[in-house]
């Protein structure tokens, strides 16, 4: 199972993609808020969103899996 992980510690501000959405390299899948900046999480893989593993407002650490792709 391919996973997209958090690039840095922060808070999940906005989830952009929903289960079933197609995702390609470089697509913004989620936006974090960290160090008072909006941090776009870009897909480093290709596939269909199988599962969103976090909720908006959730605090995540660096490398926390955010989305599962199938």
């Amino acid at each position: 199972m391919k996973k997209i992980a958090s690039p840095m510690a922060g808070t999940v501000w906005k989830i952009v993609k929903a289960p079933g959405d197609a995702v390609d390299y470089g697509d913004t899948v989620m936006i974090l808020e960290s160090m008072k900046m909006e941090i776009a999480v870009e897909a480093d893989n290709r596939g269909t969103v199988a599962k969103i593993l976090v909720e908006e407002g959730e605090v995540v650490d660096q490398d926390t899996p955010l989305i599962e792709l199938s």
Partner: peptide, 10 residues
């Protein structure tokens, strides 16, 4: 480059 990780220094 604040497009990536907010441009924060790592």
């Amino acid at each position: 480059n604040s497009k990536f990780k907010g441009g924060v220094l790592f």
